[in-house]
Design a binder for these strands. Structure first.
Lengths: 371, 371
DNA sequence: TTGAAAGCGGTACCAG
DNA sequence: CTGGTACCGCTTTCAA
């Protein structure tokens, strides 16, 4: 009888603490003690080793399951010298493009049993460097990186080379360093820009302005070259006044910067290297009395929420962020899991395609024989 | 002479491999060997222990720095039983709100020496559960979570309770589980909705429609209650026909769903619980010939890119995602680093405020004495 | 001031 | 089939 009281008393004491019912995570040792076997037996049983009798295996596995046993991540990583974790460093997350990238990376990683630690460089060289240093202590097996603007301007890629030399592979995407020997995933910016010019010309617009907010970046340069080449191939004379490079970060000023382009020139269409400038151009065209797409067209790059919700909706060269992210993660994981240390590096090009919405006219292919 | 040849030969061989110049990461052991001291001496020297002579400390620290030594993360975590890593589980990343949250969490985490592993639940209960299980093996010290829609509908919060019981604390934000005893960060949805009604009424609009795409979620319910209360306080009769609940995921169908609201009712303003529906309503109002904000007003919740780039720009009840993220991370870190196991749980409310753009008229406060 | 050794939670080799 | 033990890289106590 007194036993019952004692029990109730203890229950009472225990129940007053928030961690009443607190269940410590169980270890292999605890299981070994429970069944009076050695830890190696438990380890083998849990790993379904042929060395252990079915009987023992069963009871140990059952108990482990019941107690929600999970092998400790850090012990495992320490032992196996791999963490199954990817470090991702991107300039920001508020851009739809990078959010898409993240989605792709996270998916491919998870499908392969990897986790993702994500860090934001904020376009800062120092932050990028520090972040990589922070993760280069065995936290991760490899990096997925899109280079910060500042780093690209500085042209200082030592930290990438260092990481590779220390045995932590890198896959770069979109903003890549030409001369760093690592796997890369990029967009065919050059071709994509050529295509935009062609589409505009095909639908009757020849006074094509080019608005770039990324002229310092390699991708921006490729797009500019594509624009030039596109004009050339179609025999449209190049007019430098139709090119506007924006260095302003504050989107509120975009319209003011773009307006003169409309006022000082006779343009009938715009190619913009990102969504925000494209939408700004769209607004101004309408403000100036143009009907889009009847007598004015706009094409943007990347397709995020803005493109889908502007009035009219924006035709864009899609960047397929999610695909890129997936591709990057797959490349990295394959590298991490391949035995071949001396593999060649590769560059994967993700095709972009024109997503036709309502800021351009449809081009009806007439070269094909009619049905 | 032959020595030189031998050297050149080896150099030649080495240079053919990509991992020429490969530098293995150095450990405490390597340093100990280098100076013929014990590993404990090295460990102490690196941690600036008073037990070690300045001389020894200096040479060891210098060498470590030169060789870019970093204490192994997994060994440290194993030993200290803490990873300085936060696990974040959110329904998706393509929504601007969650991207903002991420930004805030990442910042606060980094400032305090923490990393963030981010996983997407895709609004799926199963994925949320599996993700948490995957991370509950010592990978992380605590969770920051916004509950998946499916979980909220199922009302199944066992996995959260389990995690807490096992000693892994949780901070929930925005979509929280009332009955789970953990720290929370939420928005004052109820008050916020009341404020929107008040603003519209103050600027002369009384036929206020309410469009909700989150009526199943707690936050959606609070906003609805706020809407009702707001009407009541202003003596505006409630008309159930002015309430539209959208369960459709495909944004392309929004307009078709919203149009009847305009056609069957006499409304002069809309409160929408998210940006996409707000923008869709904005478009239809204009399509129906209204002038916004002259004779029609729209207020949305959350303020992402859409609000800032729509025509006209959208007045919103700001959700301050970044602040919320920061608050959540700080709460979690404080909990993790406090010695007091039995701390009470707390709920932090982040105030939302009206960001006035151009889809509403300005309300000029006249109650104050004129200057 | 320095070193030996135990231990964090596992794996895997070798012995019995 | 089961157990002992070294080791992954580091911290920390205790002894010298």
């Amino acid at each position: 009888m007194s036993k019952i009281f004692l029990f109730l008393f203890h229950l009472f004491i225990a129940a007053r603490k928030p961690n009443f019912l607190f269940m410590k995570k169980i270890t292999i040792k605890d299981i070994a003690r429970k069944f009076n076997v050695s830890i190696s037996t438990v380890s083998k049983a849990l790993n379904d080793s042929y060395e252990i009798s079915d009987q023992t295996k069963e009871k140990i596995q059952k108990y482990a399951k019941k107690k929600n046993y999970k092998p400790n991540f850090n012990a495992l990583s320490l032992k196996k010298r791999r963490t199954k974790t990817i470090g991702m460093v991107i300039p920001n997350m508020l851009s739809y493009f990078f959010a898409q990238i993240f989605k792709g990376v996270e998916k491919a990683a998870n499908d392969n049993g990897y986790k993702v630690i994500t860090c934001i460089s904020n376009e800062s060289y120092t932050k990028e460097l520090e972040t990589m240093e922070m993760l280069s202590n065995g936290s991760i097996d490899g990096f997925i990186i899109s280079i910060a603007k500042e780093t690209e301007l500085k042209n200082n890629y030592k930290h990438f080379e260092m990481s590779i030399r220390e045995g932590t592979p890198i896959v770069m995407f979109d903003r890549v360093a030409e001369n760093v020997a690592c796997d890369k995933v990029i967009i065919d910016d050059y071709k994509a820009a050529k295509k935009t010019v062609k589409h505009l010309a095909n639908t009757g617009f020849k006074n094509i302005a080019f608005i770039s907010s990324t002229s310092e970046l390699n991708s921006g340069k490729s797009r500019y070259r594509g624009y030039l080449k596109g004009l050339e191939k179609l025999g449209i004379p190049f007019n430098k006044d139709l090119v506007l490079n924006i260095f302003e970060e504050d989107y509120k000023k975009y319209e003011a910067l773009i307006r003169p382009l409309f006022e000082n020139n006779d343009i009938d269409s715009v190619i913009a290297t990102n969504e925000k400038t494209a939408v700004a151009a769209l607004k101004i065209a309408q403000e100036k009395g143009f009907k889009v797409p009847e007598n004015f067209s706009v094409i943007g790059f990347s397709n995020g929420v803005l493109a889908r919700h502007s009035t009219p909706t924006l035709t864009t060269m899609s960047q397929h962020g999610e695909l890129m992210g997936e591709a990057a993660a797959k490349m990295l994981i394959e590298k991490l899991e391949s035995k071949d240390i001396n593999r060649e590096v590769a560059t994967k090009i993700i095709k972009s395609n024109l997503v036709e919405r309502h800021s351009t006219k449809r081009f009806l292919e007439l070269s094909k024989p009619k049905a």
